[in-house]
Deep mutational scan, measured.
Amino acid sequence: MSIQHFRVALIPFFAAFCLPVFAHPETLVKVKDAEDQLGARVGYIELDLNSGKILESFRPEERFPMMSTFKVLLCGAVLSRVDAGQEQLGRRIHYSQNDLVEYSPVTEKHLTDGMTVRELCSAAITMSDNTAANLLLTTIGGPKELTAFLHNMGDHVTRLDRWEPELNEAIPNDERDTTMPAAMATTLRKLLTGELLTLASRQQLIDWMEADKVAGPLLRSALPAGWFIADKSGAGERGSRGIIAALGPDGKPSRIVVIYTTGSQATMDERNRQIAEIGASLIKHW
C-alpha cells in the first residue's frame, strides 16, 4: 500500500482519535458579512469528516447552483462504474471539434489522439474542462443518470439537468442544476469515506481534487503551510461562485467545507476574496 493510499485508508482512524471539535460562531459572522459585502445569498456548511456531524452552517438547506462543483460527483459516478466493471479508466475516447464547448483548455489539445477516461476526469476536476465533463456525462448516460446515481446514494436534493455550459445559467428560483450545502457536503463525505467506492477509487477521487489547479484564489489562499486540501470550485452566471473541499491540518483532511453564493453584482475577484476570507476565519478558529 502506498503512503497516499495509507493516508486515505486511515482518515477515519486518525479522526477518531482527534480531540473533540467545537464550532466557532466567528466564522458564521464572516459568512454573514460576506453576504453584506456581496449583496447576495451565501450558503455555508462545515462537517466533521469522521462523524458527519454538522459543526457550523448557514442557509444549509437553500438551493444554490452547483456550477462546476458537480464534476466531482460526476467522476465519482464514473469511478463507481469502474468498480462495477462497467468502465475502464484506460479506455480512450475520441471526439471532434464539434464536441468542444466553451472553456476546454485540455480537451482542445487532444482532438487528434483523444483522451482516456482517467485523463478526462483529471481534466474535468483539476482544470474544470467543460468538454471533458460533457464527454464523461455521455459515458454514464447524461445528466439524468448522474441525478439517479445521487438518488441511489441517498441524495434526493442534488440534481443535474443540463450539460456544460448551460448548467451554469443560475436563474433565480430555478431548481435545475442545483444542490443544497448540506446535501453536497453529505454526498461528498460519502464519496470520500464511505463504502460506495473502493479504496482505490476513493484515493483516485481525492487525488484529482488535491491536484486542483484553478481554485488557488479561494480556500487555498488562506491555508497555512502543512495543511491538506482537496477541492473543486465552480463559477456561473449572475454572480455565482462555489467551492467544495476536504481539508485539515497535519497533512490530512478532517472536515468537509461547502460554500456557495449566487445573485451578486460583485466582480469575480471580490467573490473570490470573500470566500478566501471565510476560509481564513475557519482556519483561525479551527
Rank of each mutant, 00 (worst) to 15 (best):
G114Y: 09
G114R: 04
M268L: 11
N130W: 01
I275L: 15
Q203N: 03
Y103Q: 08
Q274C: 07
Y95T: 05
T178E: 02
P165I: 05
L205S: 02
F149A: 11
A225F: 05
D155A: 02
E62L: 04
P143M: 11
P172Q: 05
N168Q: 06
V214C: 15
P181D: 01
E119Q: 14
L196E: 09
A123Q: 04
Q88T: 08
L188R: 00
T138C: 12
A40I: 04
W227R: 00
Y44W: 03
W208Q: 04
T147C: 04
V31I: 08
N168M: 08
E145T: 09
A280Y: 08
R63Q: 12
N168C: 05
L167E: 01
T138M: 15
T27M: 05
L218Y: 03
Q86D: 12
I243L: 13
T262L: 06
D129V: 01
P25N: 13
E87D: 13
T126C: 07
E164Q: 00
L188Y: 14
Q203F: 07
G239L: 01
A245M: 11
G216D: 10
S122Q: 10
S221P: 11
W227V: 02
G194D: 08
V157E: 08
L28K: 13
N130S: 12
E277G: 12
M115V: 04
T107H: 02
G248T: 00
H110D: 14
T147G: 06
L79I: 11
A230G: 13
N272Q: 09
K252P: 09
M153P: 01
G251F: 06
A222L: 14
L160N: 04
S68C: 01
G39Y: 15
L79Q: 04
G234M: 14
L167Q: 05
A124I: 13
A211I: 13
A183V: 13
G154T: 04
A40R: 03
E237F: 09
N98G: 08
G242T: 02
I278Y: 01
E108T: 13
F64H: 01
A182K: 14
T267V: 08
S104R: 14
G141S: 12
A170Y: 08
V78M: 10
T187Q: 08
E26F: 15
T138K: 15
P65G: 05
E169F: 07
S104P: 02
A133K: 01
K213P: 04
M209C: 13
L28F: 03
S233Y: 01
M153C: 05
E145G: 11
L191T: 08
R92E: 14
H151I: 09
I54S: 12
N168Y: 02
S264I: 04
D231P: 12
R162I: 00
E108M: 15
R271T: 12
P181I: 15
G141H: 10
T138H: 15
F149C: 13
E61K: 15
Q86A: 07
V214L: 14
T107C: 15
T131W: 05
E87H: 04
I45D: 02
I259A: 09
T116W: 02
V72A: 12
E195N: 05
P224C: 15
A200Q: 07
A170C: 11
G114C: 11
A183L: 08
L47K: 07
L49P: 11
R220H: 13
V78R: 00
M66Q: 14
P143W: 03
D33Y: 06
D99S: 11
E102R: 05
A170R: 12
V257Y: 13
N173W: 12
K232S: 00
V29H: 13
G234C: 09
P181K: 01
L111E: 11
R159E: 12
L223Y: 03
T27Y: 02
K53V: 15
G279R: 01
I259S: 02
Y103S: 07
S57T: 12
L120E: 02
S68E: 00
S221G: 07
N130K: 02
E175C: 05
A132C: 03
E166C: 13
E56R: 06
P172N: 13
D177A: 01
R91E: 14
V257T: 09
L47N: 03
R241M: 08
A280E: 08
E87R: 03
N272V: 07
S264M: 03
P105S: 08
T69R: 01
C75T: 09
S264D: 04
A235Q: 08
I275P: 01
E195G: 11
A245G: 08
R159G: 11
I206D: 07
M268H: 10
G216N: 04
S281E: 10
E145K: 15
R189I: 09
E145C: 08
G194E: 07
D207P: 02
S254M: 07
L89K: 04
A245T: 08
T267F: 11
Q37C: 09
T107R: 01
E237L: 13
M67Y: 02
A246G: 13
S104E: 02
C75M: 08
Q265Y: 08
A124E: 00
L205C: 06
R241N: 10
E277F: 06
F58Q: 11
D161W: 03
W163K: 08
L219A: 04
H94Q: 06
K71V: 00
P165N: 10
D48A: 06
T69S: 10
L150N: 07
E87V: 09
T112I: 15
F70I: 15
E237P: 11
W227A: 03
I125Q: 02
G141W: 07
S80H: 15
E119Y: 03
L192D: 01
I229C: 15
R273S: 10
A132V: 01
A276Q: 04
I256T: 05
A276M: 04
A185Q: 00
S201H: 15
P105Q: 07
L188V: 04
A230W: 03
L120S: 04
T126A: 08
G52T: 07
T178H: 02
H285C: 04
L55A: 10
F58D: 02
T158R: 00
A235G: 07
T112V: 15
I243R: 01
K144F: 05
L136Y: 00
N272E: 10
D212A: 10
L49W: 13
S68N: 01
E26W: 15
G90M: 06
A225E: 08
D36E: 14
L120M: 09
N173K: 10
G279L: 07
N130V: 01
E119G: 14
V42C: 11
H156F: 14
P217I: 05
T262N: 04
P224T: 09
G114K: 05
N272I: 06
T116L: 11
S264E: 04
S104G: 12
L247E: 02
G226H: 05
G239C: 07
H110L: 09
T186Y: 13
W208N: 09
P249Q: 11
I229K: 02
V257F: 15
D113P: 04
Q37Y: 04
G154Q: 10
K284N: 07
D155K: 00
S221H: 04
R189Y: 04
T138D: 12
G142Q: 12
E166T: 11
L136G: 02
N168S: 05
A266F: 03
E87W: 04
R92A: 11
L223W: 06
T178F: 02
E237Y: 12
E61C: 15
I206P: 00
L197V: 03
P105V: 11
S201K: 15
I206M: 13
T261Y: 15
D83S: 09
V72W: 02
T261G: 12
L79N: 02
E62D: 05
I125W: 01
D174I: 05
N173G: 07
I259T: 06
L192Y: 14
I93E: 12
K190S: 09
Q203C: 03
H94R: 06
